[in-house]
Amino acid sequence: MPVPGLQIAKRQLNFYYILDISGSMSTNGRIQALNQSVRQSIPKMVEAAKSSPNAELIVHAVTFGSDAKWHIYPGVPIESFVWQDVSASGTTTMGAALNLVCDDLENNMPSRSLPPVLVLVSDGHPTDSFDKSLSRLVNSPWGRKSVRIGIGMGPKAEVDWGTMERFMFDMDVAPLHAANSADLANYIRWASTVAVAASSTGYSGAEESAPAHLGAPPIPPTVIDFGDVF
């Protein structure tokens, strides 16, 4: 018989939504689309968690407008995750939001966790020192190993693609562009499920010779757009 009462635990998979709620998100129904897309992603995330029986999916959310703050913290298991709508106002303190995530990764992550998944959604340019925060993320053990997906929403010209690309340093896929609500729902659902699956494969890699992350499966083709153009 196995050791009686042995404290066996699944490995935590910490998922972070990093969501832009700046004033520009209030235009063209962007913030409503964001709320709806996150809410719609929940059943798929539950499904993804079930297909990774050795991972305990914990969801966190941080929002950034005039300031960055935790919207869901501490993280909650996906089974009890309920999305409360956010509203848009203020500037784009993306760097501060990333700092909050770094704080959590540096202080609260069990060493036996799976690589965290970070999904950044924004429609504009950061108004604070994003690169400083990114550098902190890059240099943290968990940040470097994280699976990161950036989704730019709204007109292509308004999104800071340089920031998105730097955020997705060494990832296999390019930042995603959600031109409408259907795209956004599709990409958030994709990011929140396949990134979870990729993080929880249980594969390991050499420190130098393998990518620090596991990459992500191909992005599904964008569905025919029946949604609003942001």
């Binding site: 190993k145 420190e207 130098e208």
Partner: peptide
């Protein structure tokens, strides 16, 4: 002992260039 990189799925490996150092 755990190394600083021994978090997540990444670790030192026999296949690294200077494996003996690790």
């Amino acid at each position: 002992g755990e190394s600083i990189i021994d978090v997540g799925e990444e670790t030192y490996s026999m296949c690294q260039k200077n494996a003996t150092n690790y």
